[in-house]
Computed example of a mutant assay.
Amino acid sequence: MLASSVLAFLGVSALVIVTPGPDTAVTVRNALLGGRAGGIFTALGVSVGQTVWAFATSLGIVALLVASEPLFLAVKYAGAAYLVWLGVHALRSAWRPGEGGQGAFTARPARRLGRGAAFRQGLVSDLGNPKMAVFFASLLPQFVPAGQPAFTTFLALGLVFSLMTFAWLAAYSIAVAKAGDVLRRPRIRRTIEGVTGALLIALGLRIAAEQR
């Protein structure tokens, strides 16, 4: 019974993780701006955020958050605002005029994203996503076998989910970094930044407008 629960959890987790969302968009953008290290540190920030959600779930804090409408809305709107802010920043970078004043998509050296900033963006992106609270609070209890201690089982499942997420997003980062010479050409980089910025804004607005 325990083995079947673990396998079912791994299958559901893999499906959730590979579905693109805010964390994926932020990771891909940061891998483009900061290379492999930028993407991997973003993935690390996302994983640490998920570990926090898992620990909070084990303590019952997430259940209180989900049950409290004001707290849930505060997290939702803060997370949505952060995604919109990142999206606007990406659009500004994509369309910022070049040094020669020739307009958008002109050659201009891009400022490289630091590891600390990449980690922070990944962490805040995940902690500001209320779907993670709902996911951990509603899904994890379904995979806790009868007779198993809830705290340690919740935490173990959450850590497994976090490690799987890190592996997947790190693979994304490596793929983007390998194609970096092409993707970081000024015109292509700014096009991708524009598309990613629009996507982040759309995701933020969707999160803000979604019902539970």
Rank of each mutant, 00 (worst) to 15 (best):
A177K: 02
Y82F: 11
R36D: 12
Q50V: 13
A56I: 12
D181R: 14
G49V: 05
G101T: 01
V46S: 11
P130H: 01
L44S: 15
L205V: 15
A146T: 10
L59N: 13
A209C: 10
R120C: 00
P97D: 15
G45C: 03
P141C: 04
G204S: 03
A117H: 00
L15P: 06
F135M: 03
A198M: 11
A150W: 09
P70F: 08
L205Y: 10
F154H: 05
G34P: 08
A3K: 11
L7G: 05
S162N: 00
E193Y: 06
R190S: 09
T24C: 15
V18S: 09
A63K: 15
A133W: 04
A56D: 06
A43C: 12
L155Y: 07
L140I: 08
P70G: 11
V62N: 08
L113H: 00
V134L: 04
S68V: 11
D126P: 05
A104Y: 04
A156W: 01
D126N: 15
W168G: 04
D23T: 12
T165H: 06
P70Q: 07
P141E: 03
L157C: 04
V12P: 09
R189N: 12
R96L: 09
K131D: 00
G158C: 01
L7Y: 05
L155R: 02
S173E: 03
